[in-house]
Amino acid sequence: MGGLKVLCIAIVLINGQTIGTVAADGPFPDEARRMRSANEFLSPALRAEQADPIRNRGMLWVEQGERLFAQPPPPGGAQSCASCHASPETSMRGVAARLPAVDAESGQLVNLEGRINDCRILRQSLPPLDYETDELLALTAYLTALSIGEPLTVSIDGPASAFYAYGQQLWSERQGQLNVACTQCHDQSVGRKLRGDTISSAVPTGYPAYRLEWQTLGSLHRRLRSCQLGVRAQLFELGSREYLALELYLKSRARRHLIDAPALRR
């Protein structure tokens, strides 16, 4: 626990240096703040459940993903994931922590789901998987779980900087009929309650996460969509450039926080 304290102080400093400005659109003050780990908002009982690989239902998808990764491709498929990525426990460790990142060839921001689908199309001759299908959630959960304990290390420099700025803008502008910006709750009202739910710092170390409200595993993009529904906004598509930019922005704010996916969330 002593280690945690040191870690949190370090994060405030990082935020102060790199995210100390306010987006052009956002009038909301962006005071330096401590990003509170999502686990701080879980009850001790839920934290224990998350740590238990049998009771954490997200592990069902991790097991499924492990099988999918290793199994021979279905008819028509060129090769399995494991044909290229041998010994995934070591070769794929840390990959999830670095994404989303800008793809050098396309110049586009790509997250883990996008990387998996790129491999399916380009290397495996398989159709891409839709967001929130058990297969894509399973592969994402498995590969993210291989980075459990690794700190988020996304880059926001160079080609990523424009995506980062866009994510920050989306984060700080009001939207929807209820006219609320993400930052108003998840920066300025952290620890306060909306009904019985405590507002968190939006540290996305646990996704894909098993949300009790969903009773299934879900992507970070699905979670972002939940808030957009809440403020009665037009929804972005899962996997859209808007959600990708927000994913980069959130993961950059949470740099040095450790991956704990698949996590349990309220």
Partner: peptide, 9 residues
């Protein structure tokens, strides 16, 4: 013995 199974119920 503890068991869990993936099913939407």
């Amino acid at each position: 013995i503890r068991s869990a199974i993936q099913h939407p119920m």
